[in-house]
Design a protein around this nucleic acid. Structure first.
Lengths: 151, 151
DNA sequence: TTGCGGGACGTTATAAAGTTACTTTTGATT
DNA sequence: AATCAAAAGTAACTTTATAACGTCCCGCAA
């Protein structure tokens, strides 16, 4: 993520938190910044070691900030990667789907109504009430499909 | 899973492995048995401690067996739970979806064509080639929706 | 028969991800 | 200024997973 986009994302996060009456503290802001700056999924301990370049810190520091950011929908957790990524459209709560390229590591966030719909329908058939639908598709992105795999 | 069903599942696994020319060794069979017997998602270290009731064992023993069983489609891994569950229809390779009850812990395995279809369509739009679609829906099952939550 | 090669398994150690429990600080509100 | 809760600091620890290396056993070819 380039500096301009980053600035915008942070400003938007500030605004959203203010609106919601929750506190985007310097720590939380810092973690959000690191996640966004990475531009790809980043692990909690990677965040931690970057924070440690400037100050002492321990795992709970990072996990607490991440918990807050996840609650606010400012970042997403990719369960299959044990890694976190900035949300591309935090304005409204939503359930996203992720396309994860196993080759280059890039991740695309989708908000596809037809996926959400088919999930809802299938769940409803069994009387199941979804609260958090996780959709992470591992595969090969368009770019990487064109060229031979790295390595 | 009751004894009869378990016996059938193991016999089916034997047959499938024979057909495919791969070896369902006693270790692998034992791990499959423990996963199936549990009847709900079970962690690698839970399996390990059950194995240890009968013999010395270390984590790689379990993880190697699980890797094999996953490859053969005899068990599934639930990424959000870090746990494993026996496949309910291992005959053909397939991509499953899981409904995970956050209240009682029960898991339902679906094979819903409309979910698979919408995923494929959405991926195709971006030129993405899916290889392993992960769908795990956290929520409340029909039973638990009726009664107040445990705890 | 010997000896090679590969797959399965044993063993030790360690990495990676996440949590618990408790203390201290901060900051908004009375 | 006193208070109370949310946030952050700190140390220890748990859980999940992998690395690296050695051994055993079996099938097969020389």
């Amino acid at each position: 993520m380039d500096e301009r986009t980053l600035e915008k994302a942070l400003a938007r996060a500030e605004a959203l938190c203010a609106e919601r009456g929750v506190r985007l503290t310097p720590q939380r802001r810092r973690v959000l910044e690191l996640v966004c700056r990475a531009g790809h999924p980043i692990g909690a301990y990677d965040i931690l070691s970057q924070i440690r370049e400037g100050a002492a810190a321990a795992p709970p520091t990072v996990y607490r900030a991440l918990d807050f950011l996840l609650e606010q929908g400012l970042v997403h957790k990719l369960e299959t990667l044990h890694a976190y990524i900035g949300c591309t459209h935090p304005e409204h709560p939503h359930s996203s789907q992720f396309l994860i390229c196993a080759d280059c590591g890039d991740v695309t966030e989708l908000e596809d109504e037809s996926i959400v719909g088919s999930l809802r329908t299938a769940a409803a058939e069994t009387g199941f009430k979804p609260s958090r639908p996780i959709v992470e598709v591992i595969g090969t992105c368009a770019n990487c499909a064109l060229k031979p795999p790295r390595k």
